[in-house]
Design a protein around this nucleic acid. Sequence first.
DNA 1: ATTTTATGACTATTATAATAGCCATGTCAG
DNA 2: CTGACATGGCTATTATAATAGTCATAAAAT
Lengths: 112, 112
Amino acid sequence: MIPVRKRTYCRATREATELLGKLIRLGRKERRMTAHELAGRAGISRATLQKIENGDLRCEIGLFFEVATLVGVQLFGADDAATIQMQSARIQDKLALLPHSIRTSGKVDDDF
Amino acid sequence: MIPVRKRTYCRATREATELLGKLIRLGRKERRMTAHELAGRAGISRATLQKIENGDLRCEIGLFFEVATLVGVQLFGADDAATIQMQSARIQDKLALLPHSIRTSGKVDDDF
DNA sequence: ATTTTATGACTATTATAATAGCCATGTCAG
DNA sequence: CTGACATGGCTATTATAATAGTCATAAAAT
């Protein structure tokens, strides 16, 4: 029973997810952890970890990031939650300056 | 009907996902796109886009990355698929040097 | 060489994400 | 001011991800 694939993803999406999966597998092996061991620590099944390391686009982002964190893969160039949170706060400030709702009347679409 | 939350995520995971969501919302507004419009381009529902921009950990990573790409959010510091693919190839080479399967007998666990 | 076990691949089942559709609110443009 | 529409927040339904489990293979360790 072949599942019906309907969704498509652009190449950048596929490549990025594949890269993240490989970084996770590399991190795991560098730390000499088995797939079984890492899956246990992350609280997921070994099958799901396999899908993550293979760059399966349909896995939860939370699981990807959780495993990445466990094996020391840097997200957004930061190794700790506090640094990421600071970036988040800065983006929040920029967001506050923009209008709450976007109106598509003028059709300007500046590319900045 | 309150859904039973069982899974937990570490702070770094939550912060990183929240940051990515905010970067996406910022990117969308800078390009003056409505949520409806962006959801349409990404081929997802507006409700899912809302969850993504709010940093919902349970959304598919493929949807996160797809939307991020559409609004110009850089993944892994690269703006094109080719550059990401090159990074991927390098990681692949490093992986090839490591042993195929990890044995947990010696219990060394070097941190590198 | 032999044993042990880490990994890849698969299936059926269960949990849950994604969706369509709705209403209420808010806010931007005229 | 006010009317149009963008957004947030729900619900029920459907699609599908996550799981547990098994089997085969491969590769470390002895």
